[in-house]
Design a protein around this nucleic acid. Structure first.
Lengths: 194, 194
DNA sequence: ACCTGAACACCGTTCAAGT
DNA sequence: ACCTGAACACCGTTCAAGT
């Protein structure tokens, strides 16, 4: 049976969710598609590109429209939505972190954060910094969280699972720091929780 | 020639720095030590444990005494020192991030941050959250930075390198957010830069 | 356009046995 | 205590050739 690129990506997500990132190999994926491993190289130049496409699809599936109007509400929505998207598939956080680190894809969340931060008036220098800081927080936290959630099945010894409020609290720290800079340029109120 | 554990770790750091994390394989390391790969399993139960020991040694070499007295000075020192330690060896940030994600070692920076944050009076719930948030920022940022620094030699297309001030600015954001919570419990001044 | 067959150059890990 | 020899069960990638 013949496939095209989208079939491969869909099957790759299934393999990811069922077996984890370490077992998402070209050979295993080819096996699931009932095809020789070399056939995959017709659709993707290498494994990194495949993983980038899988990460993009995972984020696309988790995408939600923004409801809030204020920049800080939107930032919290984007970050929470990203976390939910990462948690929706096994090893989602590890996959997206890897793809972002290699700089081959998964750039949507960063772009969305930059756009949402616009009205905060941080300036052209601080806005990308703030967006990256938020992104690092979400990826790092969710990677931690997902690793600990899955610690039962894997070999790693997990200490206590993260309390539910931990993500929100960490995010609020950073948003407050950003709000302080926005305030310095004279706009939002300082004491609203994130 | 016979080695013990410390020799293996030292050679592993050399291989890491010379060839990168992807080429720090058990087989290559064994080759450098002029030993069969199976000999390494006398010293370490698996590759993860070896990497954990390498990460700990890398952090040990980068350790510096704390000069500051105020908690926010100490936090900035710890984070900057961690960044410097990670940048001192090729793929240092990726190695330490991996080891921390697996929860097998490299816990010193987290412990130091928790200790430094003590006097901020954040409480038992927020202190670990703040420490993790800082750690995620430093690891994420430095991983980004190191990837872009090394982008010339690797295949990944790096966009512009991070501006020098980016790390400091991102760190200041988070420290300000923490300071705000410390202020809420009534201690430090709010307008001191990080 | 999509795939096979066959190969190349590797991996981590185990385990009995040696000194 | 530290190591060898040999094997097991895998990897990603290339490339000529097929339909």
């Amino acid at each position: 049976m013949r496939h095209h690129r989208d079939d491969v990506v869909r099957h790759a997500i299934d393999v990811l969710d069922a077996y984890g990132l370490a077992d998402l190999t070209m050979r295993r994926l080819a096996g699931e598609l009932d095809v020789r491993p070399s056939a995959l190289y017709h659709h993707f130049r290498d494994k990194q590109s495949l993983l980038a496409a899988v990460a993009d699809e995972l984020l696309r599936r988790g995408a939600r429209p923004l409801a809030g109007t204020a920049w800080d509400e939107q930032v919290v929505e984007i970050c929470s939505g990203l976390r939910d998207a990462l948690l929706a598939y096994r090893d989602g956080a590890e996959l997206v972190s890897t793809v972002i680190a290699f700089g081959l894809g998964a750039s949507r969340p960063y772009d969305d954060l930059v756009a949402a931060l616009g009205p905060a008036g941080l300036g052209d220098e601080l806005t990308p910094t703030a967006a990256r800081t938020l992104l690092h927080l979400v990826l790092g936290h969710t990677l931690d969280e997902q690793t600990h959630l899955q610690a039962g099945s894997a070999g790693a010894i997990g200490d206590e699972p993260r309390p539910r409020s931990d993500f929100t609290a960490g995010l609020a720290l950073v948003v407050d720091g950003i709000r302080l800079r926005a305030v310095a340029r004279g706009s939002a109120r300082l004491d609203q929780g994130a």
